[in-house]
Design a protein around this nucleic acid. Structure first.
Length: 183
DNA sequence: CTACCGATCGCCT
DNA sequence: GGCGATCGGTAGC
């Protein structure tokens, strides 16, 4: 597992998705440990990058280790980490560690297990929106600490995609109680 | 141009 | 288990 951040992200999405489990991500000091991810590659029909570069998905074709943020269902935001060109890792769940009061206020719930247990929820808790699309995850207001070693991970089919359900492209921290759904 | 529906969530029954 | 909210990409006329 590369220790250099740029080398870490400039790899296929599935490798980055697996190795991001256990990383600590914060936005303005609010965040925690990544416990659930999904991989999206350019040759994947359900990936936003499948049909080439557009205004919306431009960040997906930009530099690795940057954010790709988009709106889903007209009301929620989703945060991705860009991997090799045209590839991204959807951050699906975080175990809250820092800035709990701020998260609770934004999410209007004090249930720790549900603060960041889903891509839309964690964006609301951390305050992620369109303004963060294209920003480096290594620079303020973001901060990212890669895991010191690879964690025990369980895989499953991705959530909310009808095609390619057999592909095991969802990665969860084994035994975590902060996931969006049990694997 | 219009129609459809998605990498979702929260509240309803 | 079902449904509405509400934006924007894509396909099809």
């Amino acid at each position: 597992m590369p220790t250099n951040v740029k080398a870490f992200f400039a790899r296929p999405a599935k490798l980055v998705a697996r190795d991001l489990i256990g990383a600590v991500l914060t936005l303005d000091g609010v965040g925690g440990e990544i416990v659930e991810t999904e991989a999206y590659a350019p040759d994947d029909p359900v990936s936003h990058s499948f049909r080439g570069k557009t205004a919306r998905n431009a960040s997906m074709f930009g530099a690795p280790a940057h954010a790709y943020v988009y709106r889903i269902y007209g009301l929620h935001w989703c945060l991705n980490a860009v991997a090799e060109p045209g590839s991204a890792v959807l951050i699906r769940a975080i175990e809250p560690k820092a800035g709990l009061e701020e998260m609770i206020a934004r999410r209007r719930t004090s249930e720790l297990k549900n603060l960041c247990s889903g891509p839309g929820r964690l964006c609301e808790a951390l305050g992620v929106n369109r303004a963060h699309d294209g920003l480096s995850l290594q620079k303020a207001p973001f901060r990212l600490r890669l895991p010191p070693a690879r964690h025990d991970v369980t895989t499953s089919g991705r959530i909310g995609v009808r095609e390619a359900v057999a592909a095991q492209l969802r990665y969860c921290k084994a035994g975590s109680s902060y996931l969006s759904r049990k694997p």
